[in-house]
Amino acid sequence: MTVHALEPADEPLESDLIADRIVDRLLSHPTFIDALADKLAAALTAAPASEPAAPAIEPSTATAPAGPDSGEETEAVVTELQSWVLCNRPDLVSGDPAVWTSAIVAAATPRRAQAMFVWAFTESCPSPFWRDLTTPIAAPRAGRGAGRHGHFAQLLAEYRAATSEDPDAPAKIDTVVAGVISAVTTLRVQEFSQQPVNARKNALAVLRKHRWDADEIVAIIGWGVRSKQHWRSNVSGVPTAATFTRIRGDWISAGSPVERTISDEQRATIDVLARGWVYHYSKRQNFSDMAVSPATFSHLHDCLTGADGADPVPAETIKSFVRWLCQPDNRHTAFLVSGVDFPSLAQVRRGIISMSTHSDTSVAATNRGASGQVSTSIDVSEV
């Protein structure tokens, strides 16, 4: 039996009038009422009387089962952390100790909260910044994004970095901050005015972006402040990761003045490529005597290592680029080569694009090779 849809009323109906009409419709179908009663009775009989059926929960709103970070164990962690802090570092507490500790545990999670404080505020911490801190740590506020700033947020970030990325992360942050302070205060009229927490936050971001090499980061920023008026006027603290990338770009364009480590394998590959460059370019320019310049060696190293932050240029691609560039009828050579130096990485990348889009020179090279016009006694791929 199906229940027919209620006929729409011409005028708005009061709730009691609507209820009366529904009842009238149901009473006009007694068989439907009997079937409905049977279904309800069967459902009530199947469900336990003392445990009513719980409503279904959508997966997106369901919560995880209670674990070790909830209930009584969370309260135990709060009590234990509060006792430890009040006994060892009461100067860190801001406000009511119970409220402060509860907020710390909620933000850091019970599993991490006490371990983080013991790590930071005892002699085991690799950074004196945390060991010697006397400023009260403001309790993180509840809510999305409320705990992203201040001492607590930075402490949590450094603890995570030290336990999952680099155990020396806090000490390397100290190195970057101290190095930048030295560079800025030595070469600037105004003093270093950046808040310590902000300086450490930026240092951590730059370290993550630059392979945790604190010494080279300090050298690059120091070079920028010493060598470029723009950076001397604008860098007054540890730069953000985006600003550091721009300083490093200038540093690379200037020839990467800080000495870089070159492996034996890279040195051997560079030697092969450099000799091939000298041979082919001297033939192209009719030079009777041409030596490998320091710039050629540096530019080849930049290509093989991807010094601009992009993918490295494979040695085989460099060999093809040299052969293409040194063809007698290649007009790109005048724009890509300066003096006798192998082109810079930026010029090489432009040249590779031209090499792949200008097929006329490639076809000409193929034809010359087939007719024996290209010397095969020494080739950059064979040197």
Score class of each variant (00 low, 15 high):
P140S: 04
H29N: 15
I57K: 10
A169D: 10
S356E: 14
E191T: 13
S70G: 03
I57W: 06
V197N: 05
P48L: 02
S124Q: 11
I217W: 06
E80I: 07
Q82I: 01
D379H: 15
A108S: 08
A183E: 09
P136D: 03
E216W: 01
V77C: 12
V177L: 00
P97V: 02
A291P: 12
A9S: 14
T305M: 01
T305E: 01
E11M: 06
T243S: 11
T175Q: 15
K39P: 00
W130D: 06
C87K: 13
D166F: 02
M1H: 13
P140G: 03
A153K: 04
A35Q: 15
K319A: 14
V235K: 01
V258P: 14
S28Y: 10
A56Q: 10
G369P: 13
V322R: 07
S381E: 14
W119Y: 08
T305V: 14
V78N: 09
S356T: 15
W223M: 00
H230A: 05
S344Q: 12
A138E: 08
L207T: 00
V189R: 12
S164K: 11
K172I: 00
P30G: 15
E191P: 10
P55T: 10
F192E: 11
H332W: 08
A107P: 09
P167T: 10
Q190R: 12
T61E: 07
S83V: 07
A49E: 10
R21E: 12
P68N: 07
R112N: 10
S50K: 06
R112P: 04
D264K: 11
L304Y: 03
A346N: 05
V380I: 14
V322A: 12
S60P: 01
G249R: 09
V177N: 11
V272G: 08
S359F: 01
F342R: 00
R160F: 03
V93T: 04
H301P: 00
Q285E: 10
T175P: 00
D302R: 03
E58V: 06
K228R: 09
H149I: 07
A66C: 06
E216H: 08
V258E: 04
